[in-house]
Nucleic acid binder design. Sequence first.
DNA 1: CGCTTCGGGTTCCCTCAGGGAACGCAGTCT
DNA 2: AGACTGCGTTCCCTGAGGGAACCCGAAGCG
Lengths: 151, 151
Amino acid sequence: MQRTRFGDMACSIARTLDVIGEPWSPLILRDVFAGIHRFEQIQQDLGISRKVLAERLRWLVDNDVLERREYSTRPPRHEYVLTPKGTELCDLLLVMARWGDRFTAGEAGPPVLRRHHACGEISQAELRCSACGGPIGAADVDLLPGPGARC
Amino acid sequence: MQRTRFGDMACSIARTLDVIGEPWSPLILRDVFAGIHRFEQIQQDLGISRKVLAERLRWLVDNDVLERREYSTRPPRHEYVLTPKGTELCDLLLVMARWGDRFTAGEAGPPVLRRHHACGEISQAELRCSACGGPIGAADVDLLPGPGARC
DNA sequence: CGCTTCGGGTTCCCTCAGGGAACGCAGTCT
DNA sequence: AGACTGCGTTCCCTGAGGGAACCCGAAGCG
């Protein structure tokens, strides 16, 4: 067997990892989210190998996270933009950024700040319960088998 | 160069990935969070190679995400438990699970449900702005350079 | 017209990380 | 003593990632 695939596991976490769990994929998503849309720019920004970048972009497009859009026919030029599915995936990046800000930023402070459009304030993303609206964290939930439980 | 390290990048997302971005690491975290604390159990649950599991556990312990605790002196037996830092990292798993539930669960529905202790309801984790309390998503923020911005 | 550039990849080679299985080792059971 | 268990470590083999070179279509330019 080669590198184990996670897509067949009966676990939403594993299936999410199947889509963006490969090395570099979340950073590619971050770049597209941050406004870097072109192959050459992403490659330079990340310092990733062109081969791997091409593979990852193809995978993300095939999985409907990114869309490969032609922005010029002559000469033919393409850019990568987020689909709605990909935009929701970026929520993950907000939570990763929050954890990184808290635990890895050190003396210098966070390298990037995020300002909420709606209120104009610098903010972090907090997790709230969709049912009661109260704060929720990993320690506050019980796990129960759901309808698509393990075979 | 070998596999590129993300820890030195001026990006909280990259630095978070440096801690749990390797293949398998999030699933190991999920298992420990779900109550699977012992080497042998994790190995069997995931089907991961013992070598890689030992490497990942050591890395997570070194990074203060897990604690290796002796639960029996004779014979010496150890288990892995979440540190506070690791527990906060599990918030990431909640968000991954939500995305996976929405976009990869298919007909069968989500394999696992999560019940909020505080209200007793089955729920998903929603993102809210820490400043105004309103809903927040990746599409609702502007990025600004912070104090620890790229050198 | 031929030469260069540029965006966006593809191909090639080499090393290193992951998979799998075997081995090791302390301590306990019978 | 011999078997078993929990927890790793060692070994070999394959395949994925890094790096650099190459490719191709379409301009841009003297």
